[in-house]
């Protein structure tokens, strides 16, 4: 099963490594991790997604809660939350497929950030599943480079 955790932490040095170290030490998997300051600069917010069985997901929540630098842990239900991920991606094109690529971008709502002689640099954000699907389609053109932010999520 998938676990989405929204975690408030102290915005201090070493906290990110403490949290990620906790996952490593107990053999938990981090699928995605996104971190940023909140409106209070002393506090950062993390969205962590992980997969595992029920026991693992429960343990992740409990172990996160034990960490002194972790202020609050919330487990989000995917259906009841807005989950978003953003990516930058360079996609190769040639004369024959350029039009179809641009049409695809329009269809998906991806923005073209730069047109280079041999590739387009696209920005795309959506729910994690759509991002995955979009990448699959873009593979047909040839992906040169990809940067993803990881999921951020918020309860509706």
């Amino acid at each position: 099963m998938k676990g989405i955790f929204s975690v408030l932490v102290e915005n201090r040095d070493g906290v990110l490594s403490a949290v990620s170290g906790l996952f490593a030490r107990r053999g938990f998997n981090i699928d995605t991790l996104a971190v940023g300051e909140t409106d209070n600069h002393e506090i950062s917010s993390m969205t962590i997604t992980s997969t595992g069985d029920q026991r693992t997901i429960d343990q992740i929540e409990k172990q996160l809660n034990k960490n002194v630098d972790v202020i609050k842990v919330r487990r989000l239900n995917e259906a009841k939350s807005v989950c978003l991920e953003m990516m930058l991606i360079k996609v190769a094109y040639n004369v024959s497929n350029r039009t179809s690529l641009i049409e695809l971008c329009q269809l998906m709502g991806a923005s073209v950030m730069k047109v280079a002689p041999k590739y387009l640099l696209l920005e795309y954000h959506s729910d994690p599943e759509s991002v995955e699907d979009f990448i699959k389609v873009l593979k047909n053109y040839g992906i040169i480079e990809i940067q993803r932010t990881g999921t951020i999520a918020m309860e509706k």
């Binding site: 040095d13 030490r25 002194v68 630098d69």
Partner: peptide, 14 residues
């Protein structure tokens, strides 16, 4: 030391 002891202490300070 903070890094090295992370999984062996309840909390650590530098």
């Amino acid at each position: 030391m903070r890094g090295a002891t992370r999984s062996f202490v309840k909390h650590s300070y530098l």
